[in-house]
Structures are given as C-alpha cells and as structure tokens.
Design a binder for these strands. Structure first.
Lengths: 200, 200
DNA sequence: CAAATTAAATAACATCTGTTGTGCTTTTTT
DNA sequence: AAAAAAGCACAACAGATGTTATTTAATTTG
C-alpha cells in the first residue's frame, strides 16, 4: 500500500527490454520511439498505449536497470571481507552485458543532470545502493579495521567502483577487467588490514 | 611542427565558448547548432563557415575542456604529498564552473561510447591525464610509501577522482565539496603513510 | 451472444535537426 | 583601385522526432 502500485502488464516490460537493447547498442540519444518499436517488432501504437510519453518509458528503464544492479548486490552473501571481491566482480563492467548495463546507467546519470524527473529516480537508486553498501560493511565490521567509519568508507567504495566502472564501461582497452579487479582488491584489502591503527 | 597547426582564428574559439555555455546550461543533447548560434548572437552561417560539420565543433569543445583540465593540473606545483590536496581541490567539482566542466566532460565520455571520432579524442585526453598523474607520483615517490606502484596508484587515484567527480557534478546534494575533499584526502594520506610495509 | 474494454496499427501533425546553397558585405591582397 | 577572399546572414532542404487522433482487431465482461 506504500507505493502507487501501477500494474506492470508484462508487455510494458517487453517494451522496456527492447528499449534497453537499443540503448545498449546505439546509445541513449539514438533510442527514439520508432527505433524501440522496431526493435520490439511492433509500431509506435504499442508504446503510446502503455506509456503516456517518452519520459515515463525512460523512468521505467532507469528503474529496471537499478533493480538489476540491486539484484547483483543482493546475490552475493557477505560473510568474510574477501566476499567483497565476489561482489565487485558481480557488478563491475567485466563482460558485455555488464558493460551495457553500466553504459546505460551512466547515460542516465548524465541525462538526469538536465531532467528533474530522472534526477529524482536516479538519486533514489543511488541512495539504496549506499544503504546496501553501508549495511554490508557494518556486517563485516568485526573483521575490518578497528576505527573504520562505515558510512564514509561505503561512500568511498561506491565512488571508486563508479570511477573504475566508468573507465571499464567506456574505455575497456584502457581499463580491462583484470585491472578493474586489481584496483578494487587493493582498496578492499586495505580495509581488511587490521594491524595499522592509522595516524591519530 | 609536430601537430597539424590548424589556425584557430579567434572566432572559432568564440563559437566553442558559446557552445560550452549552452551545454553547461541545457545539456549536450539540447546543444543544437541553432541554440549555439543564438547563444553567440549570430546565425547558423557562422558555425558552418568555421566548421565542416557538427562533429568537428564537438571535437574542438572536447579538446578545449581537456586543455582546461590539464591547465588546472599543471597550475599546482607538487613538492610535498600534501600538495596533492591542492591539486584535487583545483580539479574536483567544488563550485559552479567546475561542476559545469565535469558535467560537460562526462557528457562527452558517454557520447564517446557511440562515436569513434569522439572516443579517440577522449582516450587521448585521458592518456595525458594518466601520464601527468603518474609523473606527479613519481616526483613525490621519496616521500610516499616505500613499495608504491606508481602506475597502478595513478590509475586508482584517477578512478577515485572520476567517481567522486561524477557524484559531485551530477548529485551535488549527496556529494558536497567537503565530502569530496574528505574522501580524496583519506586516500592520499594513506599513500603518504610510510610506516606500514604492507602484507608481503 | 452482445457490449465494452483493451491492444495495436496506421496516418497525420507540428517541430526540430544538420546540412547545403546562394547572395551580400567587408576585409585583405595584388 | 581592381580583384580576390573571407565572414556571415538568410532561406530552403530532407529527414527525424515526440505526440495525437482515428480505425481496426482481439479479448474480456455482462
């Protein structure tokens, strides 16, 4: 009863999936209504029937991508600090599908800068990711550095992932999967290193 | 004599600056030829006279932004590790102009994913940044961690900056300047901490 | 089975896009 | 001063875009 509870009549998702394929293949700016309809093997009528306008369609796509990222996050059980390696391996753009997901995600991030509606949705998704990351670090806290600031480290980790993901998705030659993993492994290992009590 | 040495007849730069203002204000996708011409207080004739097509104009803009970022990089003398704080303060999206620069930069990063011409220019700029960062760390090496891998740490630092910059530029409420600086300060301080000899 | 709702195709719209061509004015060159 | 070139405005183009009817077919409801 909390949320609007719009009915998601399957076909809406078909449209969203077709749109995702177009965006992944040709970019967000070339994902026109007609291109999406063609990808679906249908006509504009379908799109206009299920969505009041293009913005509504784009919002559903953003939500869909956000859900996929959240699922990837939740699919990894976090018991030991080393499990964070599996988590980042599940999320980073290490293969075609994941590169596409990142590409789309970043497209929306940029587009959201000029669209309040998208920006709201986008900020919400990031909020959920941060909460998840902070929860993960809290759960692992006993096995991490003693004086670790969970909230701050969660944000840092997300920023580092976004930076590596940005390079990995948009410049794969310069930032191949091996280097993506190496960078985040080094950072995570530093979190798990209990000996040093920092400078203070 | 190394580079093509195209003459940059001032007016070309005027066009580029007008385009930059439009992109900063309304986003890359809404930066049409006509919008740029209007911003310049002229007509389409000016643009078509100085540029063979829109792509050439966009490439000049990307190059201009890259030059600004490089200048910011070079404006900070790096003698002590703490100077890195000043460097990141000079580059990160901590105020309006710099947020705009990042927004434009990220727009091009995403657009480059579907435009080979832009991608080449973009990769070149990133190459130069990485070289600069690696050179900076090499210069500071004697005052940093003993077993520090310069190239790897330079890439990590750039990724972290890009991640923080992405959040700072596109979601300023969630990533204000203070937090941007805090995140990078923590990372840089860890590089400068000489005591710990790591795990090996 | 009839009526009503849903699904989808088709066509038309006004607007915006990058590009091209033409002509006028100013500046530079010879 | 004559000739040439550069700078730029203006108009027109073909095509794409989101949106809005209008119609026809399929499905559900009574």
């Amino acid at each position: 009863m909390g949320r609007p509870a719009e009915k998601q009549s399957e076909r809406r998702q078909d449209v969203a999936q077709a749109a995702l394929r177009v965006i992944a293949r040709e970019g967000l700016e070339r994902a026109s209504m007609r291109a999406i309809a063609a990808e679906l093997g249908a006509t504009l009528g379908v799109l206009t029937h299920y969505f009041p306008n293009k913005d509504a369609l784009l919002r559903l796509i953003l939500e869909t991508v956000g859900a996929e990222i959240r699922e990837a996050f939740d699919s990894v059980p976090l018991r030991r600090p080393a499990d964070l390696h599996a988590l980042i391996g599940e999320i980073l753009p290490v293969d075609g599908p994941r590169r596409n997901l990142w590409k789309i995600w970043l497209s929306f991030a940029v587009a959201a800068a000029d669209s309040p509606a998208l920006a709201r949705e986008h900020a919400r998704e990031y909020g959920e990711l941060t909460v998840r990351m902070a929860a993960a670090l809290t759960r692992l806290a006993p096995q991490l550095r003693a004086n670790l600031q969970v909230q701050a480290e969660a944000e840092t980790l997300i920023c580092l992932m976004d930076g590596v993901g940005l390079h990995g998705a948009l410049m794969p030659e310069r930032m191949p999967p091996s280097r993506q993993r190496a960078i985040l492994k080094a950072h995570i290992d530093a979190l798990a290193r209990k000996e040093t009590a920092s400078h203070a």
